[in-house]
Design a binder for these strands. Structure first.
Lengths: 340, 340
DNA sequence: AGCATATATGAAAATTATTCATGTTTATCT
DNA sequence: AGATAAACATGAATAATTTTCATATATGCT
C-alpha cells in the first residue's frame, strides 16, 4: 500500500538521481530505499526506476509518482502549519546565532520564507561573536545555534544539517593554481584572508595549518564579497564553502582548489534546547533549511548516521520522558520537496 | 509521522461519525482506530476528536486533517489510475452478473463513472438469470459476479461489499402497518410481489417463510418501480432493500416495516476469478463501489471480519504464490473518500 | 440500578520496515 | 586485461510499528 513515506523517498530519489544519496536525504540506508522501491514496483507491477549503467532513472511510472509527491507533500506541510496555528504553537521566538559567517548567504532567503509562514514568531539574528554559542541557548539569549557543535550535552539537541567542502580560493593565474590540490605548506606563501573571528574558529587553521605546524599571515574582513574582492585583486588567498563561491567561479572571478587529498569538510548542525525541540515552527524551520539547502547549495552532502550525535535507535532508548510519537527520527524526518 | 493510512481512517471517521464504524470501513478493529487517533493526537500535541457523550466529533484540527485527506486521497487515486494506464493494465473486460436485481439502482451510476475512467475496458452486464452465477466466471462468460455467494471456492475470490437490511414494503394504511415488526405468518395474508426469479433466490422466502413453514402467494414483475407501484395500489406486499425504497418512503408512497426482531439482512459480495483479483481496473471498480455505496446508500453496514470468506491472516498464509506486496488485505484495502 | 453500546488502553501478537552482511554489476584506474 | 572501487540488490536478522485481544471505563437508555 502506498504511503507518504514512499513519496518522500521517491522525491529524494528524483532530486538526487541516486539511491544512496536519496537514502541519506531521508535518513535511511541505501538498502532500505532499495527495498522500498522494490516493494512499490511489486505493488504496482511496474518498474519505477530504470538502471542505465550505474545511474538510476525514473520511468514514466516513477515520474508520475514523483509528480504525485510534489502535489501531496506540499499540502501536507501546509496542513501541518495550520495545525500548529490551531494549537497556538504558532507564536514564540527564534533567535538565531550563526557560527558560520558564510551561512548568511543561504539563511537569508530561508528567513524570509519563514517569516511569511510564521508571522507570530519573533525572528532574529543574534549578532556578535561568542566563544561558546551553545551557552547562549542556556542563558535564554538565543533559541537556535547554527554551527559545528555536535557533542552531546545535557538539555541540548543537535539536528544535523549538512556537510560541505571548504575550498581554497585563488585569483585566476595565481601560482598555486597550477596545483590540483593544495597542501598545508602552500598556505605559508600568501596572506590568508578570513572573517574576523578567532583562529580556532577557522577550519583551515584549526584542522590543516596548526596540525601541520605551518605558520601563516592573516588579514580579516567582514563580508564574503570583500574577501573575494581581495582574493581577486591578489591580496591573498581564502578558504570558503564551495556553495558560497559558486557564482564567482562560474564567472572566473576567482578559482578554487581542493585542500588536501580528501578535501577539507565541515559539518553543520542546528542546536536547540531540548524543551524546544518539538516546537512546530522550529521543525518547520528545519524542514525548510533542508529543502532549500539540498535543492540550491552545490556539493553539500547529508550527514549520514555515523556523523550524527545520536542514532535513531539510541535516541529511542535514551528518552526518559513518555514517548509521545516524536522519536528523534521523527523530529528529524523531513518532507523534502521543491519549494514552489 | 503522518501517513496516508491515517488520512484514510480520518476520512472514514468523518463520514461515519463513529470510531467503530470507521474501523469497519477501513477494515480494522475499533481498537486500532482508537490507537491511531491517539498516536496522531500525541504526534501533533492536539486533540483531533472531541467526545460529546457517545458521539465523536472532529475538532478543528481534525477537520483540517480531513480536508487534507480530501485533497490528497483523490490525487492518489488518480495517480494510481495513471499507473494502470502506463502498465497497460487499462484494457480488458468487465462483464458483470448481477444476482441482486435491485442493485441496478446503485450500479448504474458507478458504471458510468467507471466507463469514464477506464474507456478501454469493455463494460457489460450479462443479462438473464443463472442458477450458479459463479460458474459463469469459470466459463469466461463473465468477469465479475455481484451477489451473495461467499463460500470459498478454488480459483475464486469473494470481496465483501456490504450488508443491508431487507424491509417489508406495504401500502400506506395497510392493516399490517399497525405492527412495528412483521413475522413470517403475516406474509400469508397478502400476495407477495417479487422479481421473476426462482423462489430460493428470494431471501424472504428462503430465510423466513420456508423455515417457518408459511405458505405464500406470489406475483412477479421485472422492475423495482413496478413492484412499488403494485404495492402502493394494494395488490400485495414486497420485500426490498432499505436503500432501494428510500425515496418512496420519504414521499410516503409506501411504508416499510422490519421483518423479524433483528431484521432480515443480506450480504453482498463481489466475486472474481483469482487471476483477475489484482487487475487495476477491477480494484478501482471495487473502490468506487465502496465509496459510492457507503456515501449514498442508507443503512448499509460494512461486512466485518467475521462475515468474510477469508480473514486477513488466513489469506496471507494460504497464498501459495510468491508474495508480491498484494496481500488480501491490500487488495481489499480501499481509499475511501468522497467522489467529486 | 442494570444493561447495552461506544470508546480507551495495556499487553501480546502480528506485521512491516530497516539494517546488516554480502553478492552482483558496472565503471575506473593502472 | 585485471584489479579496485562505486552503486545497487537481496536474503536473513533485527527492530520498530501496527494491530488485535482482552479488558476497563464511560455514556445513554429503560
Amino acid at each position: 500500500m502506498l504511503e507518504l513515506r514512499h513519496l518522500r523517498t521517491l522525491n529524494a530519489l528524483d532530486e538526487t538521481g541516486s539511491i544512496s544519496l536519496a537514502a541519506q536525504r531521508v535518513h535511511l540506508t541505501q538498502s532500505a530505499v532499495s527495498h522500498q522501491i522494490k516493494a512499490l514496483q511489486e505493488y504496482y507491477q511496474l518498474p519505477i526506476i530504470q538502471r542505465s549503467g550505474h545511474a538510476v532513472q525514473l520511468t514514466d511510472a516513477g515520474k508520475r509518482l514523483v509528480q504525485l509527491a510534489g502535489k501531496i507533500l506540499g499540502e501536507v506541510q501546509s496542513a501541518e502549519r495550520d495545525l500548529a496555528k490551531i494549537s497556538r504553537q504558532a507564536a514564540g521566538s527564534l533567535r538565531i546565532v550563526l557560527e558560520c559567517h558564510t551561512c548568511f548567504d543561504w539563511l537569508m532567503p530561508i528567513m524570509d520564507d519563514f517569516r511569511q509562514h510564521w508571522p507570530e514568531v519573533e525572528l532574529d539574528l543574534v549578532s556578535g561573536f561568542h566563544s561558546d554559542p551553545v551557552s547562549l541557548l542556556r542563558q535564554q539569549v538565543a533559541d537556535v545555534v547554527i554551527g559545528s557543535e555536535n557533542k552531546p550535552q545535557q538539555g541540548i539537541i543537535h539536528f544535523p544539517l549538512f556537510r560541505f567542502e571548504i575550498l581554497a580560493v585563488l585569483a585566476p593565474g595565481h601560482v598555486l593554481g597550477s596545483k590540483r590540490i593544495l597542501e598545508a605548506a602552500d598556505f605559508a606563501q600568501d596572506v590568508l584572508i578570513t572573517y574576523p573571528v578567532p583562529e580556532e574558529r577557522i577550519d583551515l587553521i584549526r584542522q590543516v595549518l596548526m596540525p601541520a605546524g605551518v605558520s601563516w599571515q592573516r588579514r580579516t574582513t567582514e563580508l564574503t564579497v570583500a574577501i573575494l574582492q581581495l582574493v581577486a585583486s591578489r591580496r591573498g588567498i581564502a578558504a570558503l564553502p564551495g556553495w558560497g563561491i559558486k557564482n564567482y567561479l562560474d564567472y572566473e572571478y576567482v578559482i578554487a582548489r581542493r585542500i588536501g587529498t580528501n578535501g577539507l569538510w565541515s559539518d553543520l548542525y542546528l542546536s536547540v534546547r531540548e524543551q524546544d525541540a518539538s516546537l512546530r515552527y522550529l521543525r518547520d524551520f528545519l524542514e525548510t533549511i533542508d529543502q532549500v539547502c539540498f535543492a540550491r547549495l552545490d556539493g553539500i552532502k547529508p550527514l549520514s548516521k555515523k556523523e550524527r550525535g545520536k542514532t535513531k535507535r539510541e535516541a529511542g532508548k535514551t528518552k526518559g520522558s513518555k514517548k509521545i510519537g516524536q522519536s528523534f527520527s521523527e523530529l528529524r524526518m523531513i518532507a523534502r520537496y521543491k519549494l514552489l
